[in-house]
Amino acid sequence: MNSKDALILRTAREVIRKEAKAVGGLSNALGRDFCAAVKILAASRGKAVLVGIGKSGLIARKIAATLSSTGTQSVYLHPVESLHGDLGMISEGDTIIALSYSGETEETTKLMALLSKQGLKVISITNNPASRLALASDITLDLGVKEEACPMNIVPTSSTTAMLALGDAIAVVLMRLKGFTSDKFARLHPGGNLGKLLNIRVADLMRKGRLNPVVKETSPLKAALKIMTATAAGAASVTDARGRLRGFFTDGDLRRHLQTGSFDLNIPLSAVMTRNPLKVYPETMAMDAARIISERKVDNLPVIDKKTGRPVGILDEKDLLREGLL
């Protein structure tokens, strides 16, 4: 490794160590004030209004977004714009969360003075518990950051990381207190990869109808091969006389049969199929089915109706790969 690379890595590691130290110190310092702040937010009849400017404003935006996506209605309010009409965003019952490293940011402290007069609860996140912002707040959460990660100890680095971590902690605690479930999360995230993970079910991806290979257990092996070829599937569901799933016949079962030295294609499927196979249901979450396929190292799964036990589809790993679930 040359000297330049060594300097790059040494500096990067030092930044991460300093920021990790700041977050670790914050974790150890959490106490009654944090609990009180969370209780205020949990009991609030209104929304959380995040306030901050500059780097603190960017973190405030992110915290507002995280709270909104995890069941706590939230908005971001720019301190300057608030003094020019945006105060109309604030309603009775709202809770203010104000972020400022110094606690002396002019625009933020001026806004807090106005809001406190309206009887709104104010929670401040600052590194200066003796600041004007802290004094105007009902509860102050002290970051306790001793050192920024930049060599000049000026650029907001450790402090903004600590702010972000504290905001995430508030959001996750509120999720638990409010009983925010994955179903609720899914409704708020219908798009993107999160949407796929939380909204897509096996019924949305399974092959059905003519593309679902099903044969009776009394049928010869060659009948399974014929329908598997016709449907381009690597397996077939095997049913009893009443159409209920009895087994699953796969390419692997065929190979194991041939390895015995037998090339009899008229042997009944009941003699070579996999009995009591893994299975899923149409209402199974696709991500759960993907986990089964990955952990059990199989390529296909029969999809059966819970009430009748009959195969209604087949799920192929290619379908999951196409959706980015594997």
Rank of each mutant, 00 (worst) to 15 (best):
E147A: 15
S158M: 07
N153K: 10
S158T: 08
M163W: 03
P156W: 02
G167Y: 07
G167M: 09
P151C: 12
L174R: 00
G144I: 07
S159V: 08
D142A: 14
V145G: 02
T140K: 09
L143A: 04
L164I: 06
L164M: 15
K146R: 08
L143E: 06
E147M: 15
T160W: 12
E147Q: 15
D142H: 15
M152I: 15
I154L: 15
L143P: 03
I154C: 08
E147Y: 14
P156C: 01
A149M: 10
A169C: 08
A149I: 07
S158F: 13
L141E: 01
A149D: 05
V172I: 15
M152G: 10
G167W: 05
I139D: 00
S159I: 13
V172T: 06
A162R: 00
V172C: 05
L143R: 02
A162N: 00
A149T: 11
A171D: 01
T140I: 14
G167C: 12
I170K: 01
L143V: 05
M152D: 14
V145M: 07
A162M: 10
V145H: 01
L174Y: 01
M152L: 15
V172H: 00
G144C: 14
A171V: 03
E147C: 14
L164W: 05
S158D: 05
A169V: 07
G167S: 11
E148H: 05
A162E: 08
V145I: 04
S158W: 07
L166H: 06
A169Y: 00
D142P: 09
L174P: 05
T157G: 08
I154W: 02
A162K: 00
L141D: 02
G167H: 03
L164T: 09
P151Y: 11
L164F: 14
S159Y: 08
S158Q: 04
P151V: 13
A171C: 02
E148K: 02
